[in-house]
Simulated assay, not measured.
Amino acid sequence: MNNKIAVILAGIFLSLLNFTSISQAQTTNIQDLSAKQQGIVTIAAFTANGNLEKLKTALNEGLDAGLTVNEIKEVLVQMYAYTGFPRSLNGISTFMTVMEEREGKGIKDELGREANPLPAGKSSIERGTEIQTQLVGAPYKSQLTFFAPQIDQFLKGHLFGDIFGRDILDFQSRELATISALSSMEGVNSQLQSHFNVGFNVGLTEMQMRSLISVLEANVGKKEADNATAVLNKVISSRAR
């Protein structure tokens, strides 16, 4: 009888060890992104999926983690290019409410710096073409841009020239926001795949990408995280060839 009890206790002990190891691995995985980066991920995700109650929590947590007011504004403005004006405007409106509530509690948040003026002597399209080439890793060519050249001008001139050209956020932060938003939406895996590639191009590591997905799983949902994992694995496989 004593031997049976010893075997059972040993099994329970090993199970606890395995559970602890898994929990520690998951915690470490998330912590590969800084608290500020995790804030960007959740703010972008809840702006994209329209969950404004959870967005309020994410905005408060982002401010508490050290994101400045202007950095968060920049994330919310950038979201319109990927989620549409309605979601972006709802996000900005929610942020206004959060700021009013925090000010009412006597909380003073850091405003942060304004963006430096965009370089003179180049048009938005010229500047955006350079930035897009840097992000993609080569001059961007697509059947879409031949079929609808106007969208190519808007992408280069407005998205990459006017928005990504603003230096409040670095490219890694912008890609964390974009990947998170796309991961939280349905039917955009093609764009998500492209931005995982861009994430690698701007210096994000595989561990950071997987950390982003861990944040999504913990805060947004397993369905979204599983889909993002599948897309990331496809990207990693294609880049290894």
Rank of each mutant, 00 (worst) to 15 (best):
F85T: 07
R102M: 10
I131Q: 02
T28L: 00
N51D: 15
K108S: 11
N51M: 05
A120H: 13
E103A: 07
G112E: 00
T94G: 08
N18L: 15
T42A: 13
K122G: 12
I72M: 02
T83Q: 08
S21P: 00
Q78Y: 03
L14E: 09
I72G: 00
A44Y: 04
Q37L: 07
G106Q: 08
N29M: 12
Q78K: 08
A35M: 07
N70S: 00
K105N: 13
P119I: 15
L118G: 01
A120W: 09
A120L: 13
K56Y: 12
A35Q: 11
S123W: 05
K56F: 04
A115I: 05
Q78W: 05
E101W: 04
S88R: 06
A120D: 15
N70R: 12
D32W: 08
E74Y: 09
P119F: 13
A25T: 08
V77G: 14
L111F: 10
V75K: 07
D32P: 10
S123P: 00
T28W: 03
A81V: 03
S15V: 12
E71S: 07
G66K: 06
L63G: 06
A25Q: 12
S23M: 12
L111E: 12
K105T: 10
T97P: 00
Y82V: 00
L55D: 14
G50V: 01
N70D: 01
S88N: 06
V75L: 10
G128W: 03
